[in-house]
Nucleic acid binder design. Structure first.
Lengths: 128, 128
DNA sequence: ATCTTACTAGTAAAGTTTTCGTACATGGAC
DNA sequence: GTCCATGTACGAAAACTTTACTAGTAAGAT
C-alpha cells in the first residue's frame, strides 16, 4: 500500500475538487475550470499539480506530452481525513459538536434535516 | 462591531482551546497546560498569544504585569466558522456529506447516533 | 539596595504555502 | 527544415506559520 498522502492545503483541495469532478485531466483543463471562477495563472496551477504529484496527492501519466493528472485518493477518502482532522482539532472528537457547527453555519432546509435523519437511520442499521 | 478575526491556524486553535477550557489566563497558565501534552517553549506560546492579540483572536488585559488573555470569540462562534468553512471548501456546502465524513472517520457508538438523532429533532422543532 | 525571578517585546530563522516569470522542449503547420 | 503554439521544468520570491533566543524591565525577596 502506498504511504498516505498528507492532508491537502487549501489550494490543493481546490484542484482535487476539479479532478474529482471532471476526472483525469491535463493542467490546461484544470486551469480552465479554475480561471473561470477566479483570477489565476496557468503556471501557478501547473506548479501546484507538480507539487501534488511529489506529495502523492495526484498520480501523473506522462505518456502524452500534456501529462494527465488524476486524484490519488477518492473524494470520500479525503473527506474522511478532513472531517476527522477538524473533528479532532476543533471539536474534541465530537461528531455532534461538528454537526451543530455545520448546521448553525447557515440556514438548513427541512428537506436537508430529513435527509440527515435518513442518513442516521441507515447508519444505525449498518451497525446493528 | 469589531471586525471579524481571521480563521485561527492550528497552533492558534490549540491555544484558544485552552482558553475556552480554563477561561481568561496568563501565558504561563496556558503554557503549563500545553507543555503537559507536548514539548513546547514558553516563548513560543507567548509569541503566538501576542500574534493572536494583534489579529483580534484574543483580548489582552494589561493591567497586571502578567497580561491576562481571553478568547475574543466563543468556542461556538469559532466552531461555526470552522465547520462552515470546511463544509464549503471540501463538501460543496453539504452538511450531509460532512456528517458522512465525520461518522466514517471513526467508530460511532449507538449512544452517539441516538444523540445525533435527538439533535436533529430539536433542530426541526426550532425551525417549525 | 541588590539580587533573583518572571514577564514582555523584539528579532530572527526555518518551514510551508502560494504565486508567477522564464527557459527549454516538443509536436504540428507550413 | 523552420516556425509557432503549447507544454513542462526550474527558480525564485512573497506571504504566512511556527519556533526559539535574547535583551530589557519590573516585582518581590533578602
Amino acid at each position: 500500500m502506498d504511504a498516505e498522502p498528507p492532508k491537502p492545503t487549501n489550494a490543493e483541495l481546490e484542484i482535487l475538487t476539479v479532478l474529482w469532478s471532471i476526472g483525469p485531466a491535463t493542467v490546461r483543463e484544470v486551469y480552465s475550470v479554475i480561471s473561470r471562477r477566479r483570477p489565476a495563472q496557468y503556471s501557478t496551477v501547473l506548479k501546484f499539480m507538480q507539487i501534488m504529484a511529489e506529495k502523492g496527492l495526484v498520480r501523473r501519466d506522462e505518456k502524452q506530452r500534456a501529462h494527465v493528472y488524476e486524484a490519488a485518493r477518492s473524494r470520500e477518502w479525503t473527506q474522511r481525513q478532513l472531517a476527522g482532522d477538524l473533528m479532532e482539532r476543533a471539536f474534541s472528537g465530537s461528531a455532534k459538536a461538528l454537526l451543530v457547527g455545520a448546521l448553525s453555519a447557515r440556514k438548513t432546509s427541512k428537506a436537508e434535516l430529513a435527509e440527515l435523519r435518513k442518513l442516521l437511520d441507515e447508519y444505525r442499521k449498518g451497525q446493528k
